[in-house]
Amino acid sequence: MSETAARPLVEVQDLARYFDVSKPLLNRLLEGGKRQILRAVDGVSFDIPRGRTFALVGESGCGKSTVARCVVGLYPLSRGKMIFEGVDIASMRTREAMRPFRRRLQMIFQDPYASLNPRWRVRDIIAEPIRAHAILSGREAIDARVDELLTQVKLNPRDGEKYPHEFSGGQRQRISIARALASNPEFLVCDEPTSALDVSVQAQILNLMKDLQRDLGLTYLFISHNLAVVHHMSDEVGVMYLGRLVERAPSKELFRFPRHPYTQMLLDTIPDIDMTGRQRQPVAGEVPNPIDPPPGCPFNPRCAFANDRCRTEVPVAKRAGEALVACHGIEEGRVPVIERVPAPVAA
C-alpha cells in the first residue's frame, strides 16, 4: 500500500514515436528520394502521481496528441516505457496481456462530433466498455449503471435512448466522459477535451472534470494548446516543442517563472483579457517543418538568445529551481527569468 502510494501511478520514460512518412517504395525507386522519418515525439519523460493532473501544452504539430495516443496504447512506442502502477504496459505484445490495464486507463477525445458512433444509441455507447470488460452482466444491471453514469455527468437517464446527433457539443462531451468512466478507470487521458467547445460550455466541462477528479480520485493527463485552461486545470505542466519536452514544472512555478524562451514566448501570446495594458513581446517566426527540424536546440531559429552551442548541441533537461528545463541559455544563465503573473489572490 505504502509502496503504491509513493510510486507515481503513471511514469513515462524517454517516450519516442517516429512515423515513416516517405513515399511508397515503388515511387521511391522510380522517382528517387530517400526515406523520411518524422520524429513526432522524441524522448519525452514525465510522471503523474495518483489523483493529480499533468498537462502537456504546445502548438499544433508539437507532438502532444501523439504522446496521448502512445500512453493509451493507440500507437506503439518507437522507444521508451509507459509504466502504469509499476508495470511497463508499452512492452506488452498481446491484447490479452494488455487486457487488465485497458479497463483502468481511458481517453476523452477532442472532437465530440467524431468520437461517438453516430449510429449507436447513447445507452449502447456508454455500455460498450461495461460489456467489453464484462464488468456487469444482465441488461438490468447494465442499464442501472448507465443511468448512474448519465446522472454523474449531469445528463438525464432518459437521454440514453437518444442518438448522438440529438445533443449539443457540450452534451456529447459529457457522453464521452460517461463512456470513459464506465469501466471505473483510474487514469484518464484527455486530448484537448474542450477546445471544440464554446467558452460557457467549456467552463461546464472543466468544472465537471474537476468534480469527478475530486469524487473519484482520478488521475489526468491533460492535453491542451490553451494556456489559460492548462493553468486552471493542472498541478504540473510540460511544454512541448517539435516533439520534445522543453520545460516541465509545477503549474504555479511555470506560470510565475517561465524559464525556457519558448515558454516565455507562449505566455506572451495569451491575449490580455484583464486589459492591464501590459506590453507583449512581439512573437517572431513559425514552427519549422518537423520532418526537417533544425540542428541543435529545435527552438534556436526563433530564439533571441540562441548562440553557436544552441545551433549545434541538443540541450538535455537540467534542473533549474523547481523546473526541469532543456535550454543551454538557462543552464549558462544567459536567459533572463522574469516573474510574470502576480500570485493568485487568496479568496
Binding site: R69, L105, D111, N117, E128
Partner: peptide, 14 residues
C-alpha cells in the same frame, strides 16, 4: 481514423 473507432480501440474491443 475517426475518434469513435479510436475510442473503441482504447476500450479494448477486438
Amino acid at each position: 481514423g475517426k475518434d469513435y473507432v479510436q475510442a473503441a480501440r482504447v476500450i479494448g474491443i477486438h
